[in-house]
Simulated assay, not measured.
Amino acid sequence: MGKRKELDKKVKGSTKMKSKSSEENGKLPYVHVRARRGQATDSHSLAERARREKINARMKLLRELVPGCDKIQGTALVLDEIINHVQSLQRQVEMLSMRLAAVNPRIDFNLDTLLASEVSIF
Rank of each mutant, 00 (worst) to 15 (best):
M1V: 12
G2A: 15
G2C: 15
K3V: 10
R4H: 14
K5W: 04
K5M: 12
K5D: 12
E6I: 13
L7H: 12
L7G: 08
L7E: 14
K9S: 13
K9M: 12
K10R: 15
V11Q: 08
K12H: 09
G13K: 05
G13M: 03
T15W: 13
T15G: 13
K16A: 13
K16H: 11
K18W: 07
S19V: 13
K20D: 08
K20M: 12
S22G: 12
E23I: 10
E23G: 12
E24P: 06
E24T: 15
N25L: 15
N25I: 13
G26P: 03
K27R: 15
Y30L: 15
V33K: 08
R34T: 11
A35L: 10
R36K: 12
R37T: 05
G38H: 02
G38N: 02
A40Q: 05
A40R: 06
A40N: 08
A40P: 05
A40K: 06
T41V: 07
D42W: 03
D42C: 06
D42I: 03
S43V: 13
S43Y: 15
H44R: 14
L46H: 05
L46I: 06
A47V: 13
E48F: 12
E48L: 09
A50F: 14
R51S: 11
R52V: 14
E53I: 10
K54Y: 06
I55C: 08
N56F: 15
N56M: 10
A57K: 06
R58F: 09
L61I: 05
R63T: 05
R63P: 03
R63D: 04
E64V: 08
L65Q: 09
V66L: 00
V66I: 03
V66N: 00
G68T: 00
G68V: 00
G68F: 01
C69N: 03
C69Y: 08
K71L: 13
Q73L: 11
Q73N: 14
G74P: 00
G74D: 01
T75D: 11
T75V: 11
A76M: 09
A76W: 08
L79K: 04
E81G: 07
E81W: 03
I83Q: 06
I83G: 07
I83D: 07
N84W: 15
Q87M: 09
Q87K: 12
L89H: 00
Q90I: 00
R91W: 00
V93E: 00
V93R: 01
E94I: 00
M98W: 03
R99C: 15
R99H: 07
A101E: 07
A102P: 03
V103H: 09
V103G: 15
N104D: 09
P105C: 02
R106E: 10
R106N: 10
I107M: 04
I107P: 01
D108P: 03
D108N: 15
F109M: 02
F109G: 01
N110A: 03
L111F: 02
D112P: 01
D112G: 04
D112H: 03
D112L: 04
T113V: 09
L114N: 00
L115R: 01
L115I: 02
A116S: 07
S117L: 05
S117E: 07
E118K: 11
E118Q: 11
V119Q: 06
V119D: 03
S120Q: 09
S120W: 10
I121M: 08
F122N: 14
F122W: 10
